[in-house]
Design a protein around this nucleic acid. Structure first.
Length: 194
DNA sequence: GGAATGATGTACT
DNA sequence: GTACATCATTCCG
């Protein structure tokens, strides 16, 4: 397992969204490690993508989305859930990748306890579910994936095939093909198939 | 100051 | 498939 470095993240969000499939998201929390393989992502672009939080420029909420690639962007949605994003590109650009689903790997019992669910498919099969299963908190917003508590690692997994579809749960730019799914994964969120 | 709105999840019919 | 919980942020006046 080797942690991804700055150059991996310093590309456009669409490229990084696809490249993240098969990589492993890890949270090392006080010696308790939970992780999962990324099986579903969505790219959110800069100005010109009306579905992106960065579309209207920097605000207090989306400030970390304008940080350098390799920064975590964690925000609250619907008053009760958190979503985790990977910032991409150069500082000031405002692009990010929403991680929508993982295949649970390390720390399964802790993930089950956090989620209060036992079925492995119910642990990380959605953006707010995986945040809960890995113990990601609002305080992780703005932290570095390169040398912080959250990291993304390459364990040599080979991606066979990728499905590309429109993004889920948005009301603008509904048709852009910016969602990427590991073909055949049983751990993706439920949404449009392809 | 006030109102609308969400990159969702769960339960229920 | 549909209903609804729940609230910070954002935008408008």
């Amino acid at each position: 397992m080797k942690r991804l470095g700055p150059r991996f993240y310093a590309r456009d969000a669409g490229t990084v969204a696809r490249a993240l499939l098969g990589k492993v998201l890890v949270h090392a929390d006080a010696s308790r490690v939970t992780s999962g393989r990324i099986v579903e992502t969505e790219a959110y672009l800069s100005a010109g993508d009306p579905a992106s939080h960065s579309h209207r420029g920097p605000t207090r909420r989306n400030a970390s989305m304008f940080a350098r690639g390799g920064t975590a962007y964690v925000y609250r949605i619907y008053g009760m859930h958190l979503c985790f994003n990977v910032v991409t590109g150069l500082e000031g650009v405002g692009e990010a990748v929403l991680v929508r689903a993982l295949e649970p790997l390390a720390g399964l019992e802790l993930q089950r306890a956090r989620r209060e669910r036992s079925d492995a498919r119910e642990l990380c099969s959605g953006p707010a579910k995986l945040v809960q299963a890995l113990g990601i908190r609002a305080s992780h917003d703005g932290t570095s994936l390169i040398d912080g508590p959250l990291s993304i690692e390459d364990d040599g997994f080979e991606v066979a095939a990728v499905a590309v579809t429109p993004r889920i749960g948005i009301t603008k730019a509904v048709e852009l093909p910016l969602r990427f799914v590991l073909a055949g994964s049983k751990h993706a969120s439920r949404g449009r198939r392809s």
